[in-house]
Design a protein around this nucleic acid. Structure first.
Lengths: 205, 205
DNA sequence: AACATCGTGGTACGTTCGTATCACAAACCC
DNA sequence: GGGTTTGTGATACGAACGTACCACGATGTT
């Protein structure tokens, strides 16, 4: 049976199985055997492509961050057609909210990894810590552009505002995740804050 | 040896041992034996006072939430002496940031529980989900009072603002926890946002 | 054709975990 | 003061976990 096989592809498949099963049952509850079953391969294979569970988790995290980064930037690009930069800002912030299954899983697992990273140096050094920095830079740049087009209220510090908005979005995301808040109310909150930053361009005076 | 013993007190001691060891090594890594060792009792005793690990975790969470709620409200009360309501708002938001060991542990464990609660109904029904609601109400009330005293900028919705600020504080807290951001920069961000809500009362024009 | 390597399966090993069981001494009750 | 309850110790048990080991067929190389 053993034809030559693309290792990278195989690893990706297994990592996606990890993400699926971890999304269903929680990262803490997932074992190598679960991942193997979910991926439809034997336990031995998971061991073969990842030697250790830690490496599997690390790679799964990379996969997760990559997939979600693509999702967010795709949404932002899609919003780029619309009139103002506010649409892109909204797209960036809203895309990070856990509104559907995929983003719920992302939020959930990202938070799980963050918790593990508190005491795991290997995880703490992982680029998923750097990804928020990228989002921060992107949002800051968007706000700066809006500022130059005099679309923002005076007195707004683009970087501080970007950091705050991202933190707010993340915090709201957690609230949604645990069922404390509905996605709709989170959107309302974010919108209100954007309204206080952007000069009123909505039809509602 | 067995004198009659105060069960509630014993349970509290053991739960605090749980919090300590979970704070050191992560909630996912703590077992009954670890808790027993930390509390200086035998494994059997932990079993005796809590029948199951789940009950121990639940009680530990209650303990954690209670202890932290007291801490925050104490800080808010202490800030009540100062001139404006802004001081109390700041106290409320800053007290939730993981700046020292105690608040770091709280943030870390609270997030751990939140992650577990995503797939654990017993945890999801726990009052630690309701505690943020209390904070939200308190902060909303503080902002309303400030609003009546015309201390706020016009166009501010007290409730939406409260929700947003708490989410922002929580999000910033996570950033601090994973080492992405310093406590000082988080304070700066929060202050900037408060400056945009409160009419300028600082000496810096 | 011979041989080395790769992909794969099955399974065993040692550990750790949560829980259950057995035993017993001190304290309380009447 | 006999008997029940209560607090405590030690230890056993079954399951699950990550990992290691053994075997073997298919593939590629020379």
């Amino acid at each position: 049976m053993p034809k030559r096989v693309d290792h990278a592809e195989r690893r990706t498949e297994i990592a996606e199985a990890l993400i699926r099963v971890a999304g269903r049952r929680g990262l803490h509850a997932v074992g190598m055997r679960d991942v193997a079953a979910e991926a439809g391969v034997s336990l031995r294979l998971v061991q073969y492509y990842f030697q250790t569970k830690e490496k599997l988790l690390l790679f799964g995290l990379e996969q997760l961050a990559e997939r979600f980064g693509e999702r967010v930037s795709a949404r932002v690009r899609a919003a780029g057609d619309q009139p103002g930069p506010r649409a892109m800002v909204e797209a960036l912030l809203m895309a990070a909210l856990p509104t559907d299954d995929e983003s719920r899983t992302f939020h959930h697992l990202y938070t799980s990894y963050a918790v593990l990273a508190v005491h795991d140096q290997a995880l703490a050094a992982q680029p998923f810590i750097k990804n928020p920095d990228a989002a921060e830079d992107a949002l800051t740049e968007l706000l700066r552009q809006a500022q130059e087009a005099t679309l923002l209220e005076p007195g707004v510090d683009a970087r501080l505002e970007a950091v705050g908005l991202l933190a707010m979005s993340a915090g709201l995301g957690t609230s949604i995740l645990v069922g404390q808040r509905s996605p709709e109310s989170a959107v309302t909150v974010l919108d209100h804050h954007l309204n206080r930053i952007f000069r009123t361009g909505d039809e509602a005076g």
